[in-house]
Simulated assay, not measured.
Amino acid sequence: MSDAPDKDSKTEDPSQKKLEDAHKKGDVAKSQEVTTLFMLVGTAIIFSSMAPWVAAEVSASLRLVLMNADQFDVDGSGFAGFVTGLGMSLIGVILAPLGVLYLCGLLANLVQHRPLLSTEPITPKLSKISPLAGAKRLFSIDALINFGKGLIKISVVGLVVFLVCWPERDRLETMMTADPVMILLDVQEMAVKIITAVLLVVTLIAAADYFYVRQKWWKRQMMTVQETRDEYKQMEGDPHVKGRIRQLRQEKARKRMMQAVPDSTVVITNPTHYAVALKYEKNMPAPICVAKGVDAVALRIRLVAKDADVPIIENPPLARALFASVDVDQMIPAGHYKAVAEIIGFVMRLKKSSSWRA
């Protein structure tokens, strides 16, 4: 059985990472009909605004050649110079329309997707030159759909051109005997009419095709539940690894907490299940919890406090209350000031008494 996920199992919308990866590979929603539409717009611009200028420039260049034909040296190397000079005089006229078409082609891609630079589509692959893979692409459902779309587009555009040209059939017959300048003007006028009508039809075709291509691309990017989970693990990290990192952080915090116990003022215990180490100095507004724990951690706190000669006071209600209401490195709540002050006062008096006796 194939390991590729079934299309029916792709029920999840693609993640942003999946879309970004597809974009990097050059896999984007792109409709060729949108490109055709923009190229037709460029052609309409050329015919409507640039055709007179192009015709005038070409006419001037050719007129110059014909009027001075006897003066040009066309023997040997002179012929190459003649062709080069004529080409240079026409290159500006040619580049301007080509520039318009290039700009329209660029805009056609930018309106469909953001700028993209990827070598993935042109990277050599065996599947691209495989006769079997080529035959599958040639006789696939996609190829059949594209063939059908092409037939429909040609039929519709051909019908539109016929409907535009039919009322002008008498005018077309008289063009053969008309003045060349008038022929150019008539051709320009009819071309603009044809292109305008075709643009209206192609705009509808391009909109429908882009919607179809976009939906098809989106379905191709959809993910299975397992793919979503795998990607989440890849982005957020494996739960086991995250658990291990959390464990290491807790161990580091516990070690730092134990290092603060010898400097504490008093340790209040449950006596066996809870232990809270408090530190108080004269310049402090309130005592600070430097360590706390239950069971094994509480036992460790008591042992460290005992080795450091830190007083250990048993007060089960206060120990449980402090454990639940204060975090490490935080001041105790105001509600516990009185009870803690009594204990710290007792510890202070105890230390003074021990010092006097010593």
Results as ranks from 00 to 15, higher is better:
247 Q>Y: 07
166 W>P: 02
104 C>S: 14
71 Q>C: 12
179 D>M: 05
135 A>D: 07
114 R>M: 06
126 L>N: 07
77 S>N: 15
200 L>Y: 11
185 L>T: 09
112 Q>N: 08
287 P>F: 01
49 S>G: 08
261 V>I: 14
246 R>P: 00
13 D>Y: 05
21 D>K: 15
313 I>P: 04
64 L>P: 04
237 G>L: 12
305 A>N: 09
136 K>R: 10
6 D>L: 08
89 S>Q: 15
287 P>L: 03
47 F>C: 11
192 V>N: 08
224 T>K: 08
103 L>V: 13
160 V>L: 13
65 V>I: 13
336 H>F: 00
90 L>I: 10
36 T>A: 12
171 R>P: 01
341 A>I: 04
92 G>F: 02
133 A>M: 13
348 M>P: 00
20 E>Q: 14
337 Y>Q: 01
157 V>S: 04
179 D>Q: 10
222 M>P: 10
339 A>R: 00
250 Q>G: 12
334 A>T: 06
290 V>K: 00
246 R>T: 03
86 L>F: 15
239 P>L: 04
138 L>N: 13
25 K>L: 05
236 E>N: 05
47 F>E: 04
39 M>W: 07
14 P>S: 06
203 T>V: 09
183 I>M: 11
273 H>P: 01
64 L>N: 14
292 K>H: 08
9 S>T: 04
265 T>Q: 12
308 A>P: 10
76 G>K: 05
77 S>Y: 06
241 V>L: 12
293 G>A: 02
73 D>E: 15
205 I>P: 09
